[in-house]
Design a binder for these strands. Structure first.
Length: 280
DNA sequence: CTGCAATGCTAAG
DNA sequence: TTAGCCTTGCAGG
């Protein structure tokens, strides 16, 4: 679901399904109808993601900017015989002119038609994205090393780093044994580099599989003889939404707290406090 | 069935 | 700091 890997995966799916084809663009729900008419019947040139932002490019330098927010969804279907009637509130529907593929957007926070300049503004405001090969982790490091804000907040700040959401945040902090409230300025550069390198691998895997898996092989359900996780996000994780359950590595009870309105999860033993008085 | 929380973010107050 | 977006899956009655 919508952390950066989801948007990059969608960009690939959209490009595969529609690039180079004439596409009918509509808004069964109506809220995107006016903009849709401006690109309806144009050639879709490709789709690209930066962090959690998706841009679908049409002939004439016009882009549909999509942000899924918390529960938005974009379903891409290819190789269909027939395009079904829309179900629910479909904000935007793309249909290949030959009718063999369609995509439905629902519940998105943002769906707007923008110029190349407007797209560039979004990209410029974003921090480096671990999924993009052109990303420069030093840009993020320069923000982190100068900030007394908790690393748990910095990782979710899309102007510091683009694409990391609540699951990757919790999990990468766990994997690097960092307490979420530790100030950014107390990290060593080597720690940041290791964290970044890990995100590059984890998130690329997320693009490939469409889910967030962060446990190492020795902690997999098979290796540990435990049942696989079964809930809506599907992947195998160490601490995300596991509060009150035993840590897979040390057995301590996973803890939770709220930081800036978002749920934090961490293991008090594997992610020791950075100071004696910090939250445990 | 009803209610609520959720991988996010913006704008209003 | 809070409401809103308006979907989905789960818990509880």
């Amino acid at each position: 679901m919508p952390e950066g890997h989801t948007l990059h995966r969608l960009a690939l799916e959209l490009t595969d399904a529609f690039a180079g084809s004439v596409v009918r663009v509509g808004s069964p729900q109506g809220r995107f109808a006016e903009s849709a008419s401006l690109v309806d019947g144009q050639v879709l040139e490709g789709a690209e993601a930066w962090g959690k932002h998706l841009f679908i490019g049409f002939a004439g330098e016009r882009f549909v900017h999509v942000h899924l927010g918390l529960y938005g969804k974009l379903d891409v279907r290819t190789g269909v015989e027939e395009v079904p009637d829309p179900v629910g509130q479909v904000r935007m529907r793309l249909v290949r002119a030959d009718g063999t593929a369609y995509a439905d957007l629902r519940g998105a926070t943002t769906c707007e038609l923008v110029t190349a300049e407007q797209r560039d503004l979004v990209v410029e405001r974003s921090g480096p994205d671990p999924i993009r090969p052109d990303a420069d982790p030093d840009r993020a490091w320069q923000r982190i090393r100068r900030s007394r804000a908790p690393i748990g907040g910095l990782l979710m700040d899309q102007t510091v780093l683009a694409g990391v959401g609540n699951v990757y945040r919790a999990e990468v902090l766990y994997r690097h044994r960092m307490h979420p409230l530790r100030p950014g300025s107390t990290l060593r550069q080597s720690q940041w580099q290791a964290t970044w390198d890990d995100l590059v691998v984890l998130m690329a895997e997320g693009v490939r599989t469409g889910r967030i898996d962060t446990v190492r092989p020795e902690h997999s359900p098979e290796a540990m003889g435990r049942p696989p996780r079964k809930d809506d996000h599907g992947g195998e994780v160490y601490v995300y939404r596991r509060h009150g359950q035993p840590c897979l590595v040390c057995g301590a009870k996973v803890r939770t707290d709220v930081l800036q309105g978002r749920n934090l999860f961490w293991c008090p033993r594997c992610q020791p406090t950075f100071r004696s008085r910090a939250v445990q």
